[in-house]
């Protein structure tokens, strides 16, 4: 379980996260909604140890990310997909995917290569293993980013606006893959996901829970159907305002149940 307990994060005098608490249990798909600047990316970056905390505590299966040794262990349990892909430009697509499993998880090269090729095939990129990131489209790069994360066999997948740098067609492409991934979770034991997204319709379809961040405070944490219920999340003026401002949902590719 990812447990975020009363986390405070400041940049200078600006308090970006102000006592945020949240849990993600195995098998859950939790979406973080919130307007721009509310601290969503910062929260993800605190969980994967890219930011240090100014207060509170984050544990991943009991490992405290504030402790360097425990953080190293925690990072083997979760994997991140980034908004701007963050691929290694000097490595082939295959190497981008196999690097961390080989170096960090110390898995045998042949096995990791095989898994990476299977993952690439599953997202329609079987022919791109030997290409370099610079030779791919944005949507293709993000699919590689997803394969790179999945090759870690993570218990927790962290995704920060993974489609916001993509045009609608590529967005649909990537969301379809994530949708498949989310619905494949056998409630309880599979990869849990923590999503940051502005695709509200998509979040509604795949999430088990939705939380809402407003100016660094987590004001709502509800099961998906209750979040969209008039007497649930929609009872909050900030959330009503946020949802009314969202653009109509991007065209979604078919998501198999």
């Amino acid at each position: 379980m990812i447990a975020v307990e009363g986390v405070v994060k400041r940049f200078g005098a600006h308090t970006v996260l102000d006592g945020v608490s949240l849990t993600v249990a195995p098998g859950e798909v939790v979406t973080i909604l919130g307007s721009s600047g509310s601290g969503k990316s910062t929260l993800i970056r605190c969980i994967n140890g890219l930011e240090t905390l100014d207060g509170g505590r984050i544990t991943v299966d009991g490992l405290d990310v504030a402790d360097p040794r425990q953080l190293a262990q925690a990072r083997r349990l979760s994997a991140t997909v980034f908004q701007l892909f963050n691929l290694y430009p000097h490595m082939t697509v295959l190497r981008n995917i196999t690097l961390a499993p080989e170096l960090v998880l110390k898995r045998p090269k042949a096995e990791v290569d095989g898994q990476a090729r299977a993952l690439l095939a599953s997202v329609g990129l079987a022919g791109k293993a030997d290409s370099y990131p610079g030779q791919l489209s944005g949507g293709q790069r993000q699919r590689v980013g997803i394969c790179r994360a999945l090759a870690m066999n993570p218990r927790y997948l962290l995704l920060d606006e993974v489609t916001s740098a993509l045009d609608p067609e590529m967005t649909a492409e990537v969301l379809a893959i994530l949708g498949k991934l989310a619905t494949r979770q056998p409630g309880g034991a599979g990869t849990a996901m923590l999503f940051v997204t502005h695709e509200v319709e998509f979040a509604r379809r795949i999430s088990t829970r939705i939380v809402f961040l407003d100016q660094g405070r987590l004001i709502v944490d509800l099961p998906t159907d209750q979040f969209f219920a008039a007497d649930g999340g929609l009872a909050h003026p900030r959330i009503r305002q946020f949802l009314s401002k969202m653009a109509p949902a991007a065209p979604l590719a078919e998501i198999p149940a």
Binding site: G49, L50, R75, R76, T80, F82, N86, L99, A100, M152
Partner: peptide, 8 residues
């Protein structure tokens, strides 16, 4: 940052 988050 990606490499660090992946545990290198």
């Amino acid at each position: 940052e990606a490499a660090r988050a992946f545990g290198l």
